[in-house]
């Protein structure tokens, strides 16, 4: 559920708007009224907030489960256990396939395995979900560049 915007500018605008109500009522007589359109397909914005009616199943991000798997994958990567790192990150993607960090870990693991093609593929997929300019996005860009060299 989102909070109503309560900033002072908006409050002032609302107050001023009340003064216009009477003239609005005069104009109302000549307006044409029709029902609102049927709900259109709803996108999520880049920030993840829905701009249309909430779905029947409320969205609950299972962040803790993904965090656990990120942590597991990171430590496996640090131990150069590439296959295990990939397997853990894949488990994370089953839970949230839009988590850029998971793609980064898989891409790094494939780089560790010397598989430049796969590394680039996963890094590119991660870039779709990484916030522009973020640390993850930079790391993914670097992997794409490094993978291109390995190819």
């Amino acid at each position: 559920m989102k909070k109503l915007n309560r900033n002072p500018g908006t409050v002032f605008m609302r107050g001023a708007a009340l003064g216009l109500i009477s003239s609005a009522l005069v104009l109302a007589g000549c307006a044409t009224y029709t029902p609102a359109p049927a709900p259109a397909p709803a996108p999520e914005s880049e920030t993840g907030s829905a701009s249309r009616p909430a779905p029947a199943i409320p969205k609950q991000e299972p962040e803790r489960a993904v965090d656990r798997l990120l942590e597991e994958s990171r430590s496996q990567l640090a131990a150069r256990d590439w296959q295990a790192a990939i397997a853990s990150a894949e488990r994370g993607l089953r839970i949230n396939r839009r988590e850029a960090e998971l793609y980064l870990l898989i891409a790094e693991a494939y780089r560790g395995l010397g598989n430049g093609d796969r590394s680039v593929q996963f890094a590119r997929q991660g870039l779709r979900h990484a916030a522009e300019g973020s640390r993850t996005a930079k790391a993914l860009h670097n992997l794409v560049a490094a993978g291109e060299v390995l190819r």
Partner: peptide, 19 residues
């Protein structure tokens, strides 16, 4: 544009609708 509703009312509703 053929209005669905009075544009001022529409504008006012917009002010009160959640953002």
């Amino acid at each position: 544009c053929e209005y669905r509703q009075n544009p001022v009312v529409h504008w006012l509703k917009g002010l009160w609708s959640p953002r």
